[in-house]
């Protein structure tokens, strides 16, 4: 589904990713772990198409299509979703309005019919119920006045409604206490399916206790240094990233 080959990228002219190779298949959950400054968040932002993150070499293809030149909204339409490390507050725009506009924009991109009011309400109700989110959250402005945990849950709700093929969770665990972490992880697990894939980016192993990955990659100095099963995360938890910090980029 996602095929990254020899990916080099820079931010503001500074080289951050220095040759990443990564393949993720349908139904798989991959985790990328690494020390601060290793390029984890850069990878997430490059995949989502943020401005100022430039691919200088290599390729990113998604379902066989080169996405490196696509706009962020086109990537969303293709089925890529980024759960933000810090979800953004949008004053004056309710969650419902936002979700409806986003969903219909994606459907339009894919040549699908846009959802009418009733159909949309039905869909959104089923998702809030599934995730145990109160309906009054829908009437609130996007992330405004939300606690850290609420913001992350809101991102998961968006993910549930938009139903992406690939969800990239960028340090979703940062700023969450253990209870909030569990709730968010539960939400993610409910969305795991044969047809979609999840890429979890995290510094710490603890999130992976709840979202159990099929594969774990260690990212350092802009390159994937090692790949293993879920046990690799436990090893990192025990030994830290010390073994990777000395390696040449």
């Amino acid at each position: 589904m996602l095929e990254i080959k020899n990916l080099h990228a820079e931010v503001d002219g500074k080289s951050i990713l220095k040759g990443i190779d990564l393949n993720i298949n349908k139904g798989e959950v991959h985790a990328i772990m690494g020390p601060n400054g290793s390029g984890k968040s850069t990878l997430a932002n490059v995949l989502a198409g943020r401005d100022d993150y430039d691919i200088t070499e290599g390729s990113v293809s998604f379902d066989g299509k080169d996405i490196s030149e696509l706009e962020p909204e086109e990537r969303a339409g293709e089925g890529i979703f980024l759960a933000f490390q810090y979800p953004v507050e949008i004053p004056g725009v309710t969650n419902t309005t936002f979700l409806k506009e986003a969903l219909n924009a994606q459907r339009k991109y894919r040549g699908e019919e846009e959802l009418g009011g009733m159909e949309f309400v039905k869909l959104i109700r089923s998702k809030t119920k599934e995730l145990g989110i109160k309906d009054d959250m829908l009437k609130r402005a996007v992330n405004v006045g939300f606690s850290g945990g609420e913001k992350k849950r809101n991102d998961i709700l968006q993910m549930a409604v938009l139903n992406p093929k690939l969800a990239v969770l960028d340090e979703t665990d940062s700023g969450l206490d253990i209870d909030a972490l569990k709730i968010v992880a539960e939400g993610v697990n409910k969305l795991r399916a044969e047809n979609n894939a999840i890429l979890v980016i995290t510094h710490y192993q603890r999130l992976l206790n709840y979202i159990v990955p099929d594969k774990v990659h260690v990212l350092a100095h802009g390159k994937i240094q090692r790949t293993g099963g879920k046990e690799l995360a436990l090893e990192l938890e025990e030994k830290g990233y010390a073994g990777y910090s000395g390696e040449a980029a």
């Binding site: 909204e73 933000f84 924009a105 991109y109």
Partner: peptide, 15 residues
């Protein structure tokens, strides 16, 4: 940041 957040969910820049 707000603009990117909305675009990452599928909205065009104009939208």
């Amino acid at each position: 940041e707000q603009l990117f957040y909305l675009r990452s969910r599928g909205l065009s820049t104009d939208q």
